[in-house]
Each structure stands twice: as C-alpha cells, then as structure tokens.
Write a protein that binds this DNA or RNA. Structure first.
Length: 112
DNA sequence: GAGGTGACGACCC
DNA sequence: TGGGTCGCCACCT
C-alpha cells in the first residue's frame, strides 16, 4: 500500500475506494484495518476532506458502527441517501437497513 | 508556530 | 449495564 509519504488519510482513501458497489463499512473498521483502532475519528475527518478529491471517493458507503448516516449532513441535502439507494441499499431514519448483512469489513475481505 | 477542532469508537469508572 | 472520558492526527485559524 504505502510509500512513506502516504498519510493516514491517503490510506483511508485507498480502503474506501475498495469498498464494493452496494456494500457499506464503518469508520472503526477502516481505522482497525490501518492498524489503529482508535483512529476512527480520523477516518471521519478524512471523509470530510474527501469531497475535494478528484475523483471523489465513495464516502457515502462509510457510516458509523450502528449503520447511522452520521455524515449525511456533509453532503448536499439527501445526497448521501440517494447515492446509497441507487446502489440498492435501503435507508430508513438515516440508518442503513440490514447493515449487518451489507457490512464490508476490510480486515475480513482484504486480510490484514 | 501553536492550538483548537472533528463524518467515531474503545476503554474506564 | 450505562455514561463519561480520552485517543487519534491532518487541517484550519
């Protein structure tokens, strides 16, 4: 994965780019995959900066550990939910339906 | 140049 | 079992 110049953020972006279509993951899983389970907060902040990336990464596929769309506010009105639904992911009350089934864990899927 | 802040979550009373 | 605290580190003022 990483040249020395790769920051934590860059690694986060790499993982997010690997999330399959129609699947979701959470901040903690990405942080854990990168080796610091306590850096989940950084993952969230990385998503904030993700908007300015070209091309933009699928930040809408990253939700919090209970499947809640906590980052929704950072998108244009309802954009996050629309993107998820366009991938076949149902959203109710800002929460991903069947989150456990749709959950994509990089540690499991990609290995350590 | 230093300090505050933040799309979270693990850990400790 | 549940609520509060602290860590993590890039970015902005």
């Amino acid at each position: 994965m990483k040249p020395e110049t790769y920051t934590f953020f860059e690694n986060v972006y790499d993982v997010v780019r690997l999330i399959p279509y129609g699947r979701v993951t959470n901040y903690g899983a990405i942080a854990a995959y990168l080796g610091s389970a306590r850096s989940s907060r950084m993952v969230g902040y990385a998503m904030n900066a993700a908007h300015s990336l070209v091309p933009p990464i699928a930040a809408h596929r990253v939700v919090n550990r209970s499947g809640l769309l906590t980052g929704k506010h950072h998108f244009v009105e309802n954009r996050m939910q629309e993107l998820l639904e366009s991938e076949g992911i149902k959203v109710t009350n800002n929460q991903v339906v069947d989150f456990e089934k749709l959950f994509w864990d990089p540690i499991i899927e990609l290995g350590i």
